[in-house]
């Protein structure tokens, strides 16, 4: 649902909404929260609803970030969001109770929408298993390092060693639950080399994608989360061999034993490359 790269777009800006479909992000996160001034929350909701009706976002998952459940705006937000065709709601400063609240509202509306908790407080890092476990609608999470470091009262650096624990903790959790995890956005939109480094760091920890806060970041992130051709070719070779072996246990490729972890890795590679295992011939 979240894919390799999810692009934040302010729900208050028609120009940005208009162009958002043109970028190659796997998902778009329309923002009703930080990007929208308090006096413009009503206008942003209305604009977004009309936009989702009018514009075509074919092939992209639509996620809407509502205001935190500690604010006065979230109820109106969710009211609007539930009437749209969005794929998921992103809940900022998520707590287990927030996820349960939103989830039961969705249940009562017979909605198929998913929930993406935004993990950006010290408490929510500690409670991550309860947050993910709060609803089967949670198919992925986003780590928000800016608010997290603010909550911790520590300095946020570009190199990011101060968020290493939280970042790794969440990456572990997404794999424990088998869900997707978006790494925190890189906020210096001018620094593409820094973005590259930061993306690779998140990827090495186990994230499955990263949020972008500017369209210019999309291509870089997407490329880094898309497996290279060598990896894809090897994965295809593995899956072909699996099929030929027909469940006969262990076998080898080029003299190397192929066991369950290697097969699992090949599956993930193909998944990330958006290649269906059944389409391999």
């Amino acid at each position: 649902m979240l894919g390799r790269v999810a692009l934040f777009v302010p729900a208050s800006s028609p120009a940005m909404i208009n162009s958002s479909a043109a970028f190659d992000a796997d998902a778009i996160i329309f923002d009703l929260e930080d990007a929208v001034a308090i006096s413009e929350k009503d206008a942003a909701r209305e604009l977004l609803r009309e936009a989702l009706d009018f514009l075509s976002f074919k092939g992209k998952n639509i996620i809407i970030r509502i205001n935190s459940l500690t604010t006065a705006y979230w109820e109106k937000d969710i009211d609007y969001v539930l009437k749209t065709s969005a794929d998921a709601v992103m809940v900022p400063k998520a707590r287990p109770s927030d996820i349960k609240t939103i989830s039961s509202m969705m249940d009562s509306m017979d909605s198929t929408m998913g929930i993406v908790p935004l993990i950006e407080t010290a408490a929510s890092v500690e409670e991550i298993t309860n947050i993910i476990g709060a609803s089967p609608r949670v198919k992925g999470i986003l780590f928000g390092a800016e608010d997290y470091t603010a909550d911790m009262g520590i300095e946020r650096t570009k190199e990011g060693s101060e968020v290493l624990y939280a970042r790794a903790r969440l990456a572990n959790a997404i794999h424990a639950f088998g869900i997707e995890g978006l790494d925190t956005p890189f906020t210096d939109t001018e620094d593409i080399e820094g973005l590259r480094k930061d993306t690779l760091q998140g990827k090495s920890l186990g994230y499955t994608g990263k949020a972008a806060i500017n369209p210019r970041q999309v291509e870089t992130i997407k490329q880094l989360y898309t497996p290279g051709q060598d990896d894809i070719n090897y994965a295809i070779k593995v899956m072909k061999a699996v099929r030929q072996a027909g469940g006969k246990g262990a076998f080898s490729i080029d003299g190397k034993m192929i066991d369950a972890p290697i097969i699992a890795r090949a599956r993930i590679t193909l998944e990330r490359a958006r290649i269906g295992v059944n389409t391999i011939d």
């Binding site: 970028f23 500017n214 369209p215 210019r216 291509e219």
Partner: peptide, 11 residues
């Protein structure tokens, strides 16, 4: 251009 759409088209 710094316009992301312009950059995409250019690429």
């Amino acid at each position: 251009t710094r316009d992301p759409l312009g950059l995409k088209i250019a690429s």
